[in-house]
Design a protein around this nucleic acid. Structure first.
Length: 690
RNA sequence: GCGGAAGUGGCGGAACGGCAGACGCGCACGGCUUAGGCCCGUGUGCCCGAAAGGGCGUGGGGGUUCGACUCCCUCCUUCCGCACCA
């Protein structure tokens, strides 16, 4: 069905093939999407990636960039940190494009967010890879020397970037461009700090108002001209210590002098458009999704290349294109599919002539982008997804996953959902209502992972304590959204707790298993009533901690409290009228604990005489009446400090509570004026005295 | 630099604006044991005090409130993400 989707996207122009510079991982022998090559490092093997020009398949995710941004407003139950990361990833930025004419050559287009500073542009910088670099050098003095220096910049750029910090360096091309606003000629430089993939790959440099330009200008002794004047003493280009990047009024800017910079930006963009040398524009950081992979394992991309008809999609009724079972894995690298003639040799569906089958396979993130839709109907063979089922089950109420998926998987999935909507498969804009990224396990301060080699095999812990203990320990040790530092020092606690539960059940199993359950009598003795109260309060707490708060550590703590309470009251309720409450308490412990430690719980459940599995049992329901406190303890504050406690009936009226409270703190109040007394029902009493 | 999260006992961590430290680890004492372990019980924020009791306490400072770990401002520290994005 990946192939089916691919063909639909091909029809819609969302999937396309293009020759473009791509990230190539020499170690994995495959290309990577930009997101997977962050910082020039392969996400899978962590080795340095190279740039190559290749014909590859892309998905036009950029057609969805505004939707991806705008629909974030609806993701109210997604954590901020994820939304922020996605917003930065799309990287929308408003500005203007301006063309700077160059004598004898094509003009050079720059992108700027601060067109209001354009009268302060004293030079221009091109990315080393900019297509105008070589033409600009042509015919200038010392061209060969400059070319060599730029060549060094190109080579140095990438390697140095991997280390993070790069000294700003540049080479003058020997040519000049003309600022279309004021006709001034400014030198064209090539600089290693200008990125080829963002904006137009060329910038106008305004050293007075941009820190990077400022440093570059000081290093190469270029002019610094102030054109934005903030409140206060006039700025002076020659003596500036750093760039002024804020707002102000325009100066030295011809007809725009005096305008506030905020107003100047749209006005000057309009001016450029009127004069035909520029316009207001928006740029994005997001690039189209490169899905071609030179690997065997992956969904084959369903097209063939015909000498006569070019790129021809495989017809729907011939899908799926299946991987050959006999591809040679030589370990030499490269795509094994290229060595399987039976796979490569194809017939053109259009003309019936000879064709060559595409050997690229799809990025695995394609699969993960929509697997959850397929879960609803895994065996469906007349369509990719069951639209009716999707209508019923989607959007997903709660999606739990590692924070490492904040951008890759979660952006692709959102895109895929919108794409499926646009090709008419589903009627849905966003796949997930509530996102809960759990914290990752750390060891020695860093994320535990295979690539870091600091993983702990659970086998030893399981051998010593059992899998249930390990589960319980992990869930108990930290709240799920925060990272958990791995340490075994606390594992004894959950282990002892499970042993305590086991002994408790074991003591009563025989008696309870041999006896039919009795109804809870209306006249329970007080200890049994206390026990039932704790039982039902615990049901409420654990249910809420799991369902609403997703705070599993406190759910476990609540269960520990309940078991402690059962130990305290055990003797008093194990005989006579209290017995039904004991059975209820023990069974409730197992029902609530079951999601955390299913194996031992199932065993104990059987021990209590149940023939049907615990896994089939219903989640317990709170008996509000039983959970209610008859008597409550209130703190009594005097001027904000707790000075006493009183016990009152749950439904005691305010006057009674007030009187009892003042009596309790009489010695504190004596000789002072009681200004007011607040009674917060069920919480405390607060007296203000002077 | 920008953005996010976090700062609470010896440790992991609890606490709808309402009794700070639940629960657990560790530690101390007692019981059970020939002994040790397991187990059971009690205690355990800091300071003064024999005790009763009192004082101080949630990174620092300020504010709102009868009342602040919680809300607001500000500063400091740590972790995470992004980053020559023009």
């Amino acid at each position: 069905w990946n192939q089916w989707f691919f063909l639909r996207m091909l029809e819609k122009g969302i999937a396309y093939r293009a020759n473009s510079p791509v990230n190539w991982c020499p170690s994995c022998q495959t290309v990577l999407a930009n997101e997977q090559a962050e910082g020039g490092i392969c996400w899978r093997c962590k080795s340095a990636v190279e740039q190559r020009d290749m014909e590859q398949w892309f998905l036009r995710i950029t057609a969805y960039q505004d939707q991806l941004l705008d629909d974030m407003a609806r993701l109210k139950h997604w954590p901020d940190r994820v939304l922020v990361q996605q917003r930065n990833w799309v990287g929308k930025s408003h500005g203007a494009e301006v063309d700077f004419p160059v004598e004898g050559l094509d003009s050079i287009r720059v992108f700027t967010t601060r067109v209001d500073t354009i009268y302060g542009a004293t030079f221009m910088v091109l990315a080393p890879e900019h297509p105008m670099v070589d033409p600009a050098l042509e015919g200038t003095a010392d061209a060969a020397e400059r070319k060599a220096a730029i060549g060094r910049l190109r080579a140095q750029d990438r390697r140095a970037r991997l280390e993070g910090r790069v000294e700003k360096e540049g080479v003058f091309t020997g040519r000049y461009a003309t600022n279309p606003y004021n006709g001034q000629k400014i030198p064209i430089w090539v600089g290693n700090f200008v990125l080829t993939g963002y904006g137009t790959g060329a910038i106008m440099s305004v050293p007075a108002h941009d820190q990077r330009d400022f440093e570059f200008a000081r290093k190469y002794d270029l002019d610094v001209r102030v054109v934005i004047q903030p409140e206060g003493p006039p700025l002076d280009g020659a003596s500036l210590k750093e760039a002024y990047g804020g707002e102000g009024r325009l100066v030295n800017s011809g007809p725009f002098d005096g305008l506030p910079s905020k107003e100047a930006i749209p006005e000057m963009a309009t001016h450029a458009e009127k004069e035909g040398f520029g316009k207001a524009t928006t740029t994005y950081r997001l690039k189209d999704w490169l899905i071609s992979r030179q690997r065997y394992w992956g969904t084959p991309i369903p097209v063939v290349y015909c000498e006569k008809d070019g790129v021809v999609p495989v017809p729907d009724d011939e899908l799926p294109v299946v991987l050959p079972p006999d591809a040679p894995f030589t370990g030499e690298g490269g795509n094994p599919l290229e060595k399987v003639p039976a796979f490569i040799d194809a017939t053109c569906p259009k003309c019936g002539g000879k064709a060559r089958r595409e050997t690229d396979t799809m990025d695995t993130f394609v699969d993960s982008s929509w697997y959850f839709y397929r879960y609803l109907s895994p065996h469906k063979d007349d369509g990719a997804v069951d639209a009716e089922a999707v209508k019923y089950w989607f959007p997903i109420d709660l999606y739990v996953g590692g924070i490492e998926h904040a951008i890759l998987h979660l952006v692709y999935s959102r895109f895929w959902t919108k794409m499926m909507r646009d090709i008419g498969v589903i009627d849905l804009d966003e796949p997930v209502v509530r996102l809960f990224p759990q914290g990752m396990v750390h060891k020695d301060g860093e994320v535990m992972s295979k690539s870091k080699g600091n993983t702990i095999a659970p086998d030893d812990v399981i051998a010593r304590y059992g899998a249930d203990t390990l589960r319980l320990y992990i869930l108990f040790a930290a709240p799920p959204e925060l990272p958990m530092e791995w340490s075994e020092s606390g594992i004894e606690g959950p282990h002892r707790f499970l042993l305590r539960v086991w002994r408790l059940i074991d003591r009563h199993a025989e008696a309870l298993a041999g006896q039919a359950p009795e109804p809870i009598p209306a006249d329970l003795p007080p200890p049994a009533r206390d026990l039932r109260r704790k039982v039902h309060q615990t049901i409420a707490r654990v249910t809420r901690d799991i369902e609403e708060r997703i705070q599993l550590n406190t759910a476990v703590a609540a269960l520990m409290e309940l078991v402690n309470e059962i130990y305290r009251l055990e003797e008093q309720v194990s005989t006579g009228k209290g017995r039904p409450a004991l059975r209820e308490a023990l069974e409730t412990v197992l029902l609530l604990l079951n999601p955390f430690t299913p194996h031992v719980c199932e065993e104990m459940w059987a021990g209590l005489g149940h023939s049907q599995g615990l896994v089939r049992a219903r989640w317990p329901v709170v008996d509000e009446e039983a959970a209610r406190e008859d008597e409550i303890e209130l703190a009594v504050q005097v001027n904000g400090k707790v000075r006493g406690r009183i016990k009152v009936a749950r439904d005691a009226d305010e006057e009674t509570v007030r009187a009892r409270a003042l009596e309790e703190v009489a010695d504190q109040v004596q000789g002072k004026t009681v200004v007011k007394v607040l009674v917060i029902p069920g919480r405390l009493v607060s007296a203000v005295v002077k």
